[in-house]
Amino acid sequence: MNTICQIEIDYIKPSRSIETLLLKNLNNKRVVYVYNYEGWYFRFFNSINEVLDFFEDKFEPTISFEDEEKLDKFLENLDLSY
């Protein structure tokens, strides 16, 4: 199981943010990003380039959640080996 550590949170608007997260377990570490839209919709990104492309309408993430608990479970179980 991964540990989730929030590194930074950047507010785009008061109700919209990009969270930079460090996921780690005994063997691996990985930085990922989550776009939080008003606390109701969360999009997952593997890299900052994906985030930038998303805001330039060049990329749509395939992993998204409408529930923060489901997002947390996903992050806790994400394979960090790559």
Rank of each mutant, 00 (worst) to 15 (best):
N28Q: 11
I12H: 01
F54V: 05
D57F: 08
V51T: 02
Y37H: 10
S64L: 09
E60G: 11
I18S: 00
K24G: 12
I48N: 13
N27L: 07
V31R: 02
G39R: 01
V34E: 00
S47R: 10
G39Q: 03
R30Y: 07
L52I: 06
Y11V: 08
D67P: 07
R16L: 10
V31L: 09
D53C: 10
F42G: 00
E50P: 04
G39F: 02
P61K: 03
I12A: 05
E38C: 08
L52P: 09
E60D: 14
F55Q: 07
S17G: 10
S47V: 08
E60K: 08
E60F: 15
V51S: 03
E19V: 08
I63T: 08
R16S: 09
N36E: 00
T20P: 05
V34S: 02
L52V: 15
E19I: 09
T62H: 06
F55C: 04
F59S: 06
N36M: 02
Y35E: 03
I63N: 04
K24F: 10
L23V: 07
F59E: 04
L52Q: 11
F65A: 02
L23F: 07
E38Y: 06
G39A: 03
F55T: 05
Y35A: 03
S17W: 01
I18R: 04
S64E: 06
L23D: 06
F65D: 02
F65M: 01
N49R: 14
L22D: 06
F65T: 00
E66P: 12
E50V: 04
L22C: 13
N46H: 11
R30Q: 14
E38V: 09
F54A: 05
S17L: 04
R43M: 10
Y37I: 02
I63E: 02
F44I: 07
